[in-house]
Write a protein that binds this DNA or RNA. Structure first.
Length: 112
RNA sequence: UGAGUAAGCCAGAUAGUCGCGGAUACAGUGCCGAAAGGCCGUAUACGAGGAAAGUCCGGGCUCCGUAGGGCAGGGUGCCGGGUAACUCCCGGUGAAGGCGACUUCAAGGAAAGUGCAACAGAGAUAUACCGCCUGUUGGAGGUUGGAAGUGAGAGGUUUGACCCCUUACUUCCAAUCUUCAGCAAGGUAAGGGUGGAAAGGUGAGGUAAGAGCUCACCAGCGGCAUGGCGACUUGCCGGCUAUGUAAACCCCACCUGGAGCAACACCGCAAAGAGGGACGUUAAGGUGGCCCGCCAGUCCCGGGUAGGUGGCUUGAGCUAUAUAGAAAUAUAUAGCCUAGAUAGAUGACUAUCAAAUACAGAACCCGGCUUAUAGACUUACUCAUUAU
RNA sequence: CGGGGUGUGGCUCAGGUGGUAGAGUGCUUGGUUCGGGACCAAGAGGCCGUGGGUUCGAGUCCCGCCACUCCGA
């Protein structure tokens, strides 16, 4: 991931939840805020309520993989946070892919 | 063939494309830096589990100055062995369950002492309500004996009265038996009916009625002998009966200082810990409950950062073989190096295999236990049925 | 990652020393009132988080799980 660094601090997450734009999907919620850098910063959050550690790791990996797929197609200079939502059945790779495409479109992040 | 018991093993594989982590090697007159080095790039091999989980035990390691003794507290609890250690493992003993293979068991002491045992029941750790028996008092009835009276008969003296004998009936007295009622009386604990439990069980003798009162067998207790390292087994003898509960206090034996890698050590940042104040050798303080012992300093106060490095993976390690042992396990030899992250690396897609799906993700490290778990396989054994 | 704590009527909590599980509030019914509230009386509602064990008998004692929650740089 060339243009992306991970987002680490808790207060950065809080800032994005408070001031950023968001769009909710079935399995994930996407928060987006402009930063003044020439890169994107990515954060993924999964709460303990989602499941045990295997499930939490699984959803994180699926989101990361899909972000990697779309990375070159989206605009630069944003903080992006994904929040996994608890659902009855575990989503697979293609569910997440579809949903992330939909969310990016809604928040107008694709390069024209 | 069916049903079952025990032990063990695997935890998708192969190929391709993209992606992640640390390690090693290489390269670029690349970027940052005074340098050490870091970042970017390429290649190579490696990269979660049988439970990584729960954190229930044990140990290593680190710090608390030392980690000593005693008390308290906590833990363990049939016997022998294994181990660094254990609440673990192996083998055995006993008890319980199963037709059996086999499984399960916190399995020391209740005769050191204390506590508790609701309700029910006559009575709850010994008692005596009912009952049974004896004694005694009274009533009723039967039998026997005696006395009196009446009637009848016979006899004697006879006019008769009267006397004697026999028999029947009535009354009274005594003895005895049966039965009923009572007793501030005694004996008894077989029977009643409650309860989880009523001071051994069954049968016979015995007795006024009964009772281990006596005897036989059984259970339990003690002693001796036998076999065994031992738990214990088997046999003989003795006394004659001992409620349950110790996952109630307790007694006995053994073990046990506390805290945890967010321990801890070093570096850096910061106006600043190389600071200030208080107490002190008769004392106070520390030793994470107390005392003794020991120590020589101890205690209190105020700000910020929450960064980096080490600890961090070569270890009670893994594999193979041999030897010792019944086994757990130990020893020897040879070979191997097999995650080490720090917001936290293993993922995605395609194809093939009949199918790829369970529980589930290392965080200082080991040995166990417990719990979760789709499917597939191997070995040994038991029972039932059929055929030979 | 490590160390603790708590689960009892719908809700907030007692009971923890083995012997029929209780309080307040809420709910239902009746009374009182013209009606409501307040008040009075009666009642329902619990296998004490869950699975075993010890015991004659566990909410209580012991062991294993589950859920929630607090603390530690």
């Amino acid at each position: 991931m060339k243009n992306t660094v991970p987002l680490k601090n808790n207060n950065e997450f809080l800032k994005i939840y408070k001031k950023g734009r968001f769009q909710a999907g079935k399995n994930v919620v996407l928060y987006v805020m402009k930063n003044r850098l020439s890169l994107n910063r990515l954060g993924i959050t999964v709460s303990k309520k989602f499941g045990k550690s295997v499930k939490r790791n699984r959803i994180k990996r699926l989101i990361k993989e899909n972000y990697r797929y779309y990375e070159e197609l989206i605009k630069v200079g944003y903080d992006i946070v994904f929040v996994a939502r608890k659902n009855d059945c575990m989503p697979d790779y293609f569910d997440i892919k579809k949903e992330i495409k939909f969310l990016f479109k809604k928040l107008d992040l694709f390069i024209e």
